[in-house]
Amino acid sequence: MALLEIKNLCARVGEKEILKNFSLTINEGEIHAIMGPNGSGKSTLSNVIAGHPAYEVTSGEIYFKGLNVLEMTPDERANSGIFLAFQYPTELPGVGTALFLKTAMNAKLKFLGKPELDAVTFMKKLKVRANALGITDEMLKRPVNVGFSGGEKKKMETFQMAFLEPDFCILDEMDSGLDIDALRVVSTGVNVMREPKRSFLIITHYQRLLDYIEPDYVHIMVDGRIVESGDKNLALKLEEKGYESYK
């Protein structure tokens, strides 16, 4: 069954058209990878799905679990199960990480009509997820992303994802800035989340990541739309030939 359906999506920032008739369907349990040159619109796509106000959708549709995503606020999208691990995570000075995650978790539980987590259960869950992704207690005590290295920020994004257990995960260049060990840890973190009903959209520049997280489909995105789709071998071909033939 389709989890996410994007139909003929056009979007812009200011006067600039970035997404041009972008279409993609992701079924439950699938992993899709998108590769594409700098500036082709990959992060724009992520932000449009998550509902960033700077991006204006001029036409097209997005459905998630059959719901019209474009009519939902960003927090409704998140609570319905969409998670975006940002390419450039934002720093929130003065906002403690633990409080932030507790607020996020309770918002989701409330949205789903479930009771909030008590303090003990929350801490336990937080610690389990943190340990698995190499997030230290010290990092949890700091304000969200403040002063974290590039790689640490990426780990934090993956950790938040594991903690909030969304149904659809967009990973926007989660491998950029990660050292080899961290890449393995984070990839394992993603792989253990694989479930028949959970899907992933993985944006990357490097075929190497797809050795760790094996995609069902690979799409090549150029100038705001998908120009070719295939299986994981497409990434290998791309590694060899580059984007020249698509331009």
């Binding site: 998550a50 509902g51 960033h52 106000p53 606020t73 960003p74 927090d75 999208r77 998140a78 609570n79 975006l84 940002f86 995570p89 934002t90 929130l92 000075p93 003065g94 906002v95 932030f100 607020t103 996020a104 918002a107 989701k108 949205f111 304000p143 969200v144 938040q160 909030l164």
Partner: peptide, 20 residues
């Protein structure tokens, strides 16, 4: 947006940022 994208409603998100 970062707070909203984690499911936190707009009023709560603004309060969190103002307090910080």
């Amino acid at each position: 947006f970062y707070l909203l994208a984690r499911g936190i409603d707009k009023i709560t998100a603004q309060k969190i940022l103002l307090k910080a």
